[in-house]
Design a protein around this nucleic acid. Sequence first.
DNA 1: GGCTCGGCTAAGCGCCCGCTCACCAACGGC
DNA 2: GCCGTTGGTGAGCGGGCGCTTAGCCGAGCC
Lengths: 207, 207
Amino acid sequence: MSTAQETTGGEVEPWEEVTPDAARRLLVAAVEAFAERGYHATTTRDIAGRAGMSPAALYIHYKTKEELLHRISRIGHDKALDILRTAARREGTAAERLADAVGSFVRWHAGRRTTARVVQYELDALGPEARAEIVALRRQVDAEVRGIIEDGVASGEFDVLDVQGTTLAVLSLCIDVARWFNVDGPRTPEEVGALYADLVLRMVGAG
Amino acid sequence: MSTAQETTGGEVEPWEEVTPDAARRLLVAAVEAFAERGYHATTTRDIAGRAGMSPAALYIHYKTKEELLHRISRIGHDKALDILRTAARREGTAAERLADAVGSFVRWHAGRRTTARVVQYELDALGPEARAEIVALRRQVDAEVRGIIEDGVASGEFDVLDVQGTTLAVLSLCIDVARWFNVDGPRTPEEVGALYADLVLRMVGAG
DNA sequence: GGCTCGGCTAAGCGCCCGCTCACCAACGGC
DNA sequence: GCCGTTGGTGAGCGGGCGCTTAGCCGAGCC
C-alpha cells in the first residue's frame, strides 16, 4: 500500500512527520505566512486564522511563535542537507554528482519556494541557541558541496582556483532562487535546475 | 576645492544628497537598523535613538517609517544602476565590460553591505506604488546586464544558450553577496569582485 | 452514567508599536 | 525688540501585539 507520502508529480509532501494533525496545519500556515510577509510582519492571529483555529490554539502545540520558526527551519535544513547528501554520495564522476546536486537543490528551492524562503531568509529571527544549531547544519551543507568540488579538482575534471570561494558562490546561486523564483513565471523548477547545473559546471571549468 | 564627497579609500560617501543634516543622520540610522534587524523588526524609537534624537523628531523629516525605506531603496537602486551603466557603456570588449560590471557591482554589494541588504531584501515591505517604482528600476538593471551578454553573443565572444536565464543567474549571484558577505570575514570586497568576475566569464563561455 | 482529560475557545492582560500634539529655543528680517 | 519660521522635545493616544487564563466540550474508561 501507499505510504501516503507520494503526491502528484512524485514529489514527497513534507511535514508528514509533524503530528498531531492540528500542529501540522498550524505549521503549514506559518510557513505560508512567514514566506509571504516575513517572520516579524506575521502575527500569531494570522497563523491561527489560516489554520482555521483561534489564536490561543497555537500555544497548545508550540510554546512561542519563535518555536514555530525554529521547527520549520530545522526540518527544512534537514531536508536540504538530505538532498545534497544523496547527490554527493551517488556513483559517478564529480561532474555528474555536482550537476545532480545543483539540479536537485535548485528544484527544491524553486518547487518548494515558500518553505525555502523561510528556511534561507529568516535565520536572523531565531534566538542565539536556535541560530547556532541551524548554522551548524549550514556548515554541513557547505561541506557537501565543497567535497564534490574538491573531488573534481583532485581527479582533474575541474579547474578551480579558489575552492572555498567557488563553493560559496555555487551555494549562493542556488539559495537565491528562493528569492526570485515565481511559480507563475515562465520557467519550471526543472528548467531552472537544468540551466543552473549547466552554469555551475561552467563555473568549475567542466562545461 | 573638495566636493566633500571623497573619503578614505576613494569611495564616495553616499547620502550626501540627503539634506538637511538631521534628515541624513536619521536615514543613515535607519539603514543600519533595517540592515541589522529588518524593516518590520525595527522601531521608529530605535532609529531616532541611533540618530541621537527623540522619537518625534523622525516625523519632522519623514511622513512615515515607510517613507524612510522608500527613500533608501530609491537612492540605493539609483546608485546600483549607475554603477552598472558606467561599466556597460565604457569602451572595450563584451568580456571586459561584463567583468567590469560584475566586479564593481559586487564590490558595491560587499563594501556597502548594510545599504545593499536593505535595498535588495526589503522590497516587499514597501507599499504597491513605491514597490512598482523600484521594480521599474530593477528592470533597467536587468536590461543593462542582458545588453552586455547579448553583445558578447553577437560578437561571438560568449557562448550562451539562454540569455535571459543567464542574466538572471548573474544578477542573482551578485545580489546575494549582500546576504552572506561578512565585513570581518576573510575576503575583501575587491577579492570577491575579482572572483565573481572570473566565475561569470566562465558562465558565459568566455573564461 | 459519571469522571477524567486533552484540545479548543472567548476574553483579556500588559506591553510597546507608529504616530500626534502642545509646546519651546534659536535665529534672521525689519 | 518683536515676530514668524524652523527644528526640536516630552507626554501620550489608540491600537494591535505575543501570550495567558478560565472554562467548555466530547471521546474514552470504569
